[in-house]
């Protein structure tokens, strides 16, 4: 039916394949950059839970100056909030796992202080993924 394809056998690797290869790699790199960009620019909301109940909800885009809030659960904790992210800065718990988690910057990340029964979670406002799954 098609003379052209039957006359000459297709090689496994021909020079033009380099363009296909490099195109895919470039797309991958661009996506790496975009996913980093989205990680901070997304409409992120920090949700603080005390004893499993929602305590407060802060939209990070509306935060101008970084500030800290004190949350009283079983123990005293303090959470730093800035437009880039949120994280525990101090807690009266013995293990300090929550503080060591560092600053959360991407949707879906969470930090928990189990002894104080305080947990902190970042959700994307534009995302339709339910936030009950992690609770």
């Amino acid at each position: 039916m098609n003379k052209k394809s039957s006359e000459k056998k297709r090689k496994y690797f021909a020079f033009p394949d380099v363009f296909v290869l490099s195109f895919v790699v470039i797309v991958a790199l661009v996506c790496v950059c975009m996913s980093f960009g989205i990680g901070t620019d997304d409409d992120l909301t920090a949700v603080v839970y005390v004893d499993g109940n929602e305590y407060t909800r802060i939209t990070l885009n509306s935060v101008d100056e970084p500030y800290e809030i004190n949350v009283h659960g079983e123990l005293e904790t303090s959470i730093r909030i800035s437009s880039e992210g949120v994280g525990f800065v101090s807690s009266d718990c013995p293990d300090k796992l929550c503080v060591n988690t560092g600053t959360l910057t991407k949707a879906g990340e969470s930090a928990v202080c189990l002894p104080a029964r305080v947990s902190l979670k970042l959700v994307s406002t534009s995302s339709s993924v339910p936030d009950a799954v992690a609770g």
């Binding site: 394809s5 000459k8 297709r10 090689k11 496994y12 690797f13 021909a14 020079f15 033009p16 394949d17 363009f19 296909v20 290869l21 895919v24 797309v27």
Partner: peptide, 21 residues
């Protein structure tokens, strides 16, 4: 497009990767 429409002849590698991608 890679198999028919181009003057240059792509190899199986290029066509396969383009398809998968």
């Amino acid at each position: 497009f890679l198999i028919r429409c181009s003057k240059v002849r792509f190899g199986c590698l290029g066509v396969g990767i383009a398809g998968a991608f």
